[in-house]
Design a protein around this nucleic acid. Sequence first.
DNA 1: CATGAATGAGGTTTCATTCAT
DNA 2: AATGAATGAAACCTCATTCAT
Lengths: 209, 209, 209, 209
Amino acid sequence: MIAPEKIRKRHRRPNARPGEILEAALDLFSERGFAAARLEDIASRAGLSKASIYLYYKDKNRLLNAIVEAMAVTNVLSVAAMADSHQGPMMPLLRGILQHLGQRLAQGRLPDLIKLIISESRAHPDLGRLYLDRVVNRALPLFRKLIERGVASGEFRPVDADLAARCLVGPMLLTAVWKSVFEPIGAEPLDSEALARQHADILANGLLA
Amino acid sequence: MIAPEKIRKRHRRPNARPGEILEAALDLFSERGFAAARLEDIASRAGLSKASIYLYYKDKNRLLNAIVEAMAVTNVLSVAAMADSHQGPMMPLLRGILQHLGQRLAQGRLPDLIKLIISESRAHPDLGRLYLDRVVNRALPLFRKLIERGVASGEFRPVDADLAARCLVGPMLLTAVWKSVFEPIGAEPLDSEALARQHADILANGLLA
Amino acid sequence: MIAPEKIRKRHRRPNARPGEILEAALDLFSERGFAAARLEDIASRAGLSKASIYLYYKDKNRLLNAIVEAMAVTNVLSVAAMADSHQGPMMPLLRGILQHLGQRLAQGRLPDLIKLIISESRAHPDLGRLYLDRVVNRALPLFRKLIERGVASGEFRPVDADLAARCLVGPMLLTAVWKSVFEPIGAEPLDSEALARQHADILANGLLA
Amino acid sequence: MIAPEKIRKRHRRPNARPGEILEAALDLFSERGFAAARLEDIASRAGLSKASIYLYYKDKNRLLNAIVEAMAVTNVLSVAAMADSHQGPMMPLLRGILQHLGQRLAQGRLPDLIKLIISESRAHPDLGRLYLDRVVNRALPLFRKLIERGVASGEFRPVDADLAARCLVGPMLLTAVWKSVFEPIGAEPLDSEALARQHADILANGLLA
DNA sequence: CATGAATGAGGTTTCATTCAT
DNA sequence: AATGAATGAAACCTCATTCAT
C-alpha cells in the first residue's frame, strides 16, 4: 500500500524502461510519422527525459528498428502454431486464423505497427526488409501452403495459391489501415471480428447464390 | 542565336508547371515521407528552384493537399461511371471494376497516392478527411449498393453488404501497398491484373469445390 | 558618405563572405579551442547568421580545414622565394629569413594559426598531416639545405643540418606561442623582430666571447 | 574464496587514485583537447567510473588545474637546483641543463603537458597564468641570470640576456611540440638529446666557421 | 516568372554533473 | 568509496520560408 507517486522518478522499474519507450515511440511514430515525431514527446510519454532514451537506444533509427524487432514476430508465430497443430479440412483452419487476426487487430497495437511499416519502409529500407523477411515472407507462404493443401485434397477449387493467399490477407490489411488511419481521424469504427467472419464466409462460398 | 533549350526552360508549357511540381512532390513524399522530403529535392526533380515552388503553392502543406485534390477523384469517377451505365447481373460489373482497378494499380501513380494517404493522414487530418470524403466514403457505399442490389435480386447470397464491400476492396489495397512499399525495397513484383482476376473468381464462387 | 548601416544585411559583398568567415573562425578557434568554439559566435563575429555559414562550409570540420588550407602555404612560399633568389654566403640569407619571419609573427595571424595547429592536430590528424606536408616538411628541408650549403662551402662549421634547422626554427616557434598564448593572458609583449635579430646573431657567432 | 583481483580493485593503493586519474586526464586532454575529452573516457582509462572522478575532483576544470599544479613545478625545480649548485663558467652549466631537458622531453609527460598548456591557456586564463607564474616566469629569469653572469664575467659576448634566454628555450619548445603534436600523427621521431647537444654546440660557438 | 542568398526556428545528439543505492 | 541511472543544458545542423534582384 505504498503511495505510487512516492516512487522515485529515478531508478524506477529499470527493467520496464525499454518496453515503455517502445510503446511510446510506436504511439508517436504512428501519430506523426517517424521524421516528424519528436524524441522529446516520446520521452515525456514514456515518463522520462529526452536524454534518457539514449541510455537504451543509440539513436532515433535504432528506436524505430527496435519497435519492429520487438513486435513483428509474435503474430506470425501464433498463426504458424495454429497451422501446425491442425488436422482435417482447411476451411475451418482458415476461418480460425481469420478470426484470430480479427481479434488481434481489434485489441493490440498491430494496426499501428502495420501502418508504421507501410509509412517508413521506403525511407528505411532495412526496416522494410526486416519486416518483409520476418513477417510477410513467412506469412504469405504459410497461407499459400494451406491453400495448396486444400486444392490438393480436393477441398478447394483449383486456384492460384499465391494470389489466393493475398486475397485472404487483403481484407485484414484493410482492417489494419482502417483502424490506424481512418478511425483516428473520425471514421466510424470497424468491427474487425465481424469483418473477419464475413470474409471467411465469402472466401468459403463466394457471393453467388 | 539563343540556345533553344534556354527558351524552352523559360517559356515551356507554362501551365504544365504546377502538374510537374505535383508529380515531383508525390515522388519525394512517397519515397521519404512528407516531413523528411526536402522542398529543394522536389524542386530539382521538377526542374526549377526551391523558391519558385512558392510561386505556385503557398507552402509545403498546400503542396500536399494539392496532390490529393488533383489525383484523388479520378478513380472514383471512373468506377462510378462504370456502375451507372451498367445493366443486368452484378457479378460481371464487379469483375469489370476489379479488372479496371487492377489496371490502374499496374500503371499509374495510384499506389503511391494510397501510400501517401496512409502515411500522412494522421498527421494531417484535413488531408485524411478529404480523402475519406471524396474517395473512401464514395467508393465504399458505391460497392455496397451494388452488392445490395445483387442480394435483393437474388443473384447474391444474403451477406452484410458493407463488410462485403470491404472484402472486395481489401485485395486492391494490398496490391497498392505491395507496389508502393515492398516492390521498391526489393520484393518480387506483383501482377495486379492477375490478382484482380483471381480475386473476382473467389469473390464469385468461393474457394470450396 | 553613405550611412554604412544602410548596407543590407542580405546580399552584402557576397564574394568576401568566405574569407570573413575564416577570419572569424580563426579568432574563435584560437581563443576557445575548436571544440569549445560556438558556430554561433563565429557567425556573429563574421556578421551573418549561424545557418549561413553552412552555405559556405559543409560543417565545422570543413571550416577548420579551410582555415589551414587558406593560410598555411603563404609563409613557406615567401621564404622559398627568398632562398631561390639568393646568391653568395648563407648567413645573410638566414638573417634575412629570420627577420622576415619576425615581421610576419609581429603582424599577421601566423601565431594564431600555429597555435591552432598545435592544439588541434592530434584530434584532427588530417589537419595535422596537411600542415606537416604543406608547411613543416617543406620548411625544414629548405632550411636544412641552406645549412648544408653553408657547411659544404666552408662557411659553416660541420653541424648536423637537420638538427641545426630545428634550432633555427625553435625561437620562431617560441615567439608564435608567446604571442598567441601568453600575451593574450597578460604576459608582457615580445618584440619578435628584436628576438629574430638576436637569434641570428647568436646563430652566427655563438655566445662565447 | 574471494577472487583476489576483487580485493585489488577496491583496496588497491587508495592514495594512488588521484594520480592515476591525472595521468588518464592528461592522456585524454592532450589527445582530444580539453573540451572534446569525455570524462567517461578518462574514467575508464583510469579504471573507475565516471561518477567516481567527482570523489576526487570537484569538476572537469579542477581536474585540468590539478594536472598543471601536480606536474608543472618539478622541472623548474630541478633546473634551479642545478644552477644553484654550480660553480665556474656558465657554458658547461647551460650545456648540462639542455642535456637534462633533452632527457625529460624524451622520457616523461613533459611534451604533453606543454601542449596542454599551449592549447588551453587562452580558454582557461587561470591555468595559463598559473603556468606563467610557476614555470615560465621562473625559468626565463633563471636562464637570463645565468647568461647575464656569463656576460658580466666576460665569458659571453654582450647579448640581450632576455632574448638570448628565449633563444635557449626555443628549440626545447620545438622538441616538445614535435613529440606531442607531430610524432603522434606520423612524423618521424626526433632525438631530443641529440638536438639538445647540437643546440648547445651552436649556442656556444655559432654556425660560422 | 525565377532564383541565389539569407535566416529563424526547431530537432537530434552529446555530456558534465547529480543522486540514490 | 563506488557507481548505474538520470537529466538539463547546450551545440550542431537542417530546412521551410522570405527577400531582393
